Simulated assay, not measured.
Amino acid sequence: MRNWILCLCALAVVASISAQHYNRYDNFNADSIIQNERILLAYYKCVMDKGPCTKDGKNFKRVLPETLSTACARCSQKQKLVVRKLLLGIRAKSEPRFMELLDKYDPERANRDALYHFLVTGN
């Protein structure tokens, strides 16, 4: 469970950053975030409304719905690779937890097909 929480936090961070299409995040190192359990847990709690948010956490939480609902449409190619890597990692660790995140940000499941297509193809 602990590893899953870490991956979920990384997803939230990267997905949220990606939706903004900020150049400063083009060199984002997903692996270093995944390895820092304290930071990942903090982001997870933030995006799931289970804890306080930092400035970055608030931004991630704000853009996460768009990132998931558009399958990272506004992301650069590099950002898409990072988001896809993190989503697939989370899904591999815990399908139920992955679904919990998706259900929070896409409760009507209106965009699941597009998101799953993105996970399979990267587009």
Results as ranks from 00 to 15, higher is better:
87 L>Y: 07
25 Y>G: 15
73 A>F: 12
37 E>V: 04
106 D>L: 05
55 K>G: 08
61 K>Y: 01
41 L>G: 11
39 I>N: 03
11 L>Q: 07
113 D>L: 14
15 A>S: 12
94 S>T: 10
37 E>P: 00
15 A>C: 14
6 L>I: 12
121 T>R: 07
52 P>G: 04
46 C>D: 03
73 A>I: 15
75 C>F: 13
109 R>W: 03
66 E>V: 14
93 K>D: 14
116 Y>H: 02
109 R>Q: 06
88 L>H: 03
6 L>D: 11
122 G>T: 08
15 A>M: 13
49 D>E: 10
19 A>V: 07
65 P>N: 08
73 A>G: 00
9 C>R: 11
118 F>P: 01
101 L>E: 00
17 I>R: 15
75 C>W: 06
65 P>M: 09
33 I>A: 13
44 Y>G: 02
5 I>P: 04
108 E>Y: 03
105 Y>Q: 07
104 K>N: 03
17 I>K: 15
97 R>I: 15
58 K>I: 01
113 D>T: 12
19 A>N: 12
42 A>C: 02
18 S>F: 08
77 Q>P: 13
121 T>G: 00
52 P>M: 04
102 L>E: 00
100 E>N: 11
121 T>I: 02
93 K>T: 14
94 S>L: 09
37 E>F: 05
4 W>A: 08
1 M>G: 12
63 V>H: 14
66 E>D: 09
